[in-house]
Simulated assay, not measured.
Amino acid sequence: MLDKLAEESHLPPRIENAFKLFLKRTPPERLNRTVRTLFIEYLSHQHDFLPPDFHLYLDDLSNLFILLDKIDCETKGWYTECEEKN
């Protein structure tokens, strides 16, 4: 499926619609801040007991943060300051 997705110029309609709904409800800057905060809180409490495959979590989260940063750049002005802060 990933090869097919890479070849297509558009996302499948169901994914595109779900993503649009997600963006309508969730400011990416706020989500980015929330996930980073939760992650740091998790690390501060679990730093001595991290799972052996934690490096995979870091890779996935890094990719998510990169995506959220790009989405945030592309959606500047879509949300009110109140929506982005709450």
Rank of each mutant, 00 (worst) to 15 (best):
P12T: 07
E8A: 15
K24T: 10
A6S: 09
F22M: 04
H45D: 13
Q46E: 15
I66D: 09
K4E: 11
R30S: 04
P51V: 08
I66L: 10
L11R: 05
E41G: 12
P13H: 03
D3M: 11
T34H: 13
Y79T: 00
T75I: 04
A6Q: 15
Y57P: 00
F65G: 00
N63C: 03
K24W: 07
K70M: 10
P28E: 00
L50A: 03
L67W: 05
I66Q: 08
L56F: 12
L68D: 05
R36C: 06
A18P: 00
K70C: 05
F22Q: 05
D48E: 13
E41L: 09
D3A: 13
T37S: 12
L43G: 07
F19Y: 12
T34P: 01
Y57D: 15
E16T: 06
Q46T: 10
F19W: 09
F19M: 07
L31R: 02
Y79R: 02
D59M: 12
N86V: 14
K70F: 03
F65N: 02
L31A: 02
E29Y: 03
P27K: 00
H55P: 00
C73S: 15
K4S: 12
I40T: 14
E29L: 08
L31S: 00
P27D: 03
I71P: 00
D53K: 10
N32Q: 14
E81Q: 11
T75S: 05
R25T: 07
P27H: 03
P51D: 07
L21E: 10
T26W: 01
L68C: 02
V35N: 03
S62G: 15
E41W: 06
G77P: 01
F22I: 05
P13S: 07
L68N: 00
G77Q: 06
P52Y: 08
L43I: 09
L23M: 08
T37C: 07
D69R: 08
R14K: 14
E74Q: 12
E81R: 06
K20S: 11
F39A: 08
L38T: 09
K85T: 14
